[in-house]
Design a protein around this nucleic acid. Sequence first.
DNA 1: TATGAATGAGGTTTCATTCAT
DNA 2: TATGAATGAAACCTCATTCAT
Lengths: 229, 229, 229, 229
Amino acid sequence: MTKKPTQAALPTATRASAKGPAGSVEAPASNRATRAAERRAAIVEAAMEEFIARGFAATRLDDIAKRAGVAKGTIYLHFKDKESMFEELVRIVIVPVVARLTTLPPPAGSVRDLIEAFAGNFLKEVIGTKRGDLVRLIVAEGPRFPSVADFYYREVVSRGIAAMRALIELGIARGEIREKDLARYPQILVAPAMIAVIWQSLFARHAPLDAQDMLRVHLDLIFGERRTT
Amino acid sequence: MTKKPTQAALPTATRASAKGPAGSVEAPASNRATRAAERRAAIVEAAMEEFIARGFAATRLDDIAKRAGVAKGTIYLHFKDKESMFEELVRIVIVPVVARLTTLPPPAGSVRDLIEAFAGNFLKEVIGTKRGDLVRLIVAEGPRFPSVADFYYREVVSRGIAAMRALIELGIARGEIREKDLARYPQILVAPAMIAVIWQSLFARHAPLDAQDMLRVHLDLIFGERRTT
Amino acid sequence: MTKKPTQAALPTATRASAKGPAGSVEAPASNRATRAAERRAAIVEAAMEEFIARGFAATRLDDIAKRAGVAKGTIYLHFKDKESMFEELVRIVIVPVVARLTTLPPPAGSVRDLIEAFAGNFLKEVIGTKRGDLVRLIVAEGPRFPSVADFYYREVVSRGIAAMRALIELGIARGEIREKDLARYPQILVAPAMIAVIWQSLFARHAPLDAQDMLRVHLDLIFGERRTT
Amino acid sequence: MTKKPTQAALPTATRASAKGPAGSVEAPASNRATRAAERRAAIVEAAMEEFIARGFAATRLDDIAKRAGVAKGTIYLHFKDKESMFEELVRIVIVPVVARLTTLPPPAGSVRDLIEAFAGNFLKEVIGTKRGDLVRLIVAEGPRFPSVADFYYREVVSRGIAAMRALIELGIARGEIREKDLARYPQILVAPAMIAVIWQSLFARHAPLDAQDMLRVHLDLIFGERRTT
DNA sequence: TATGAATGAGGTTTCATTCAT
DNA sequence: TATGAATGAAACCTCATTCAT
């Protein structure tokens, strides 16, 4: 198991130079370590797309290698085997996202404003994007990869639930939210967003869903008043 | 040769000749057609469990056969290949469920009562059960089995959405529901139930979820008042 | 190994009544033994066509049964297994042909007339027909079925060679044939006819062959003179 | 793991780097490309022998792999599947033969001399050899592999026929051949040779055939005179 | 006698993993 | 470090044969 310094994964689409003969003069900035890191990032990126598109079992390392522009054997220089690659991938991709979320905006304005800002972000960066598919992938593979489910619960779900709960309690304290029991089930707050994620993956082509509008209605429900857009 | 006629747990569509009350004079309990139907049901049952436990790609027909107590070749007497087996399975299992739902209870009492009854049913029969896992399976495999996603949307989702919308509109007309826009997004009504299904599959062991209570809170949110249980 | 009284095989296309319910009133002439013989004949006929079309290994008993209008198991009431079925088939089909040949025309007229008559018969009944394909089948499967090759050599080839040799010697004695050594290689006399058989199977669609004309030219070569048709 | 680098008997098309006379300074005997070519040649050789011995359908890739001294999977690095392997094989084996024939000897001496030389070559290199069995294999599998039959017709048969026709016409022009119609059916010229090929495969052990003598008699027939050997 | 559902050995093909270069 | 040819276990699927009805 070789763990090289982790690089940002999904966002960076650094495609390593495919199959140049040894000694070729490349971008000047590429020293040995950088090259390795770039390759690793390319593998992570490629693997993520393949896993999302086909699921764990149906994904072939051959395809990952091809997409990443490396040889199949190279993958084994970075990951022990397919399983641990998958497990590490989820970490690699999720960690920076969580990191960004925890260093979030300064809580200014009303609670509804806060939540709306958050929802807007979610809309833009998750629903209907590769990151949304990652959520579906975790739902799909979770039972067979308890360590992935564990990690996801620990790093994302439990933190998200806690953050939402804090916001809800603030809203209740400020009188913005009437339903006091909501604090016990922050899941209710998030549920429509999750449904939107899944809907886009599965049913978008049958019946497109205006996620933004739906989330607004949901917030109206919770905050008890219409808001002038 | 291991023959262990397994019992069916999922709603087996093809259980032929559900024998009448004792004493009725019928054909000898096991004619050829009956035996075939039993085998088919056993295969359906076994396949469902394996697919749920491992996903489509990771499920081995060998294991299905073993679990169903039949030889590998027997599966191919009932299904063309693994793919169409999976696709048919979903139909076979879902159709009777839908059938039961469409012949539902006579709409008596308040809309909230109706929805609560429905939610209670859902709680008991789906959340945390094999049927719930089937939902997760469809979410997981849907993108790779468009025909399954299509079928599920057509038979379950679109109907469910329509039924919920009707109920919501009734609730609005009767003054039970204040948020009129809810009728445009029945998904909001169902979202927490779906989240509960997924939660049970993935995170139950980290943080058990009192789905019943959560759904009650959600309904309070929608119907705007506490209800004395 | 059950050998029922052999019936004419390839020519007769008696298709047994497929799957009529027991007790159905059929053609009056059908007593038990007749029915069995008909079934057997149907199997032989069907098997021959399948073997010719696909070769021994690629032929499925399922297809033979379907084509013969019997159940798969029925085949095993008439033949021990696939191999001996094939071996018996060749006998069953060839024996009556040989029988007819040995009770051939009264040797009247010139040797060339005799051979031409024979060739004409061969043209009509073998080249480009199912019987021709049978020859190709024996060429194809002979090495793997020595008993078939043996039988074919003994019953057909050696007799044919002997008969041709007798004719050639007669032709030499009568002065019709000049090349005396031809009697040592009757194969030369038959070769173009065999080539025509194979040609029709393989290359007819690329370059159709006028077998009749070719045989005439060949006889001109041997008998040394043109014949006014 | 049994690695027995087999020797090629059939004309292997891809035998790379036929090493020069001893002492020449070359690349190390086994670079990657060479090894690959050797393996491929071994597979071709082994497959040919198995296909000839058992026919297409009855040949197991397992046996080919074992005979070639490679793992089963290796075959799939060189050929898409069993069918296209068979189709390619015929090409691979036949192409160099055709190539050699087209760069034939300069036409010197009488037409009969030419044809005798050709027949002698055929006798030595085809009749009773693996190459002869290949002809039988094509006859056997042709109907199920139209592409093979097509290829064989295009590359071998049509060219052979054309070449024979040219020779015959030359013979007629020079007065060596009296039967003018022979030019329309060069098949007659070749027929006994083909029959000899098949005879060796099927009946040699029952009645050995002196192919050389037979061909001589055949030529006597065509050229109308005895030749002092 | 006839059936055809059931069997399971055995075939083809795939693909994660290794390792010589 | 990187390669990709080679491996072989394991998967899917077929089909000759059996046997209860």
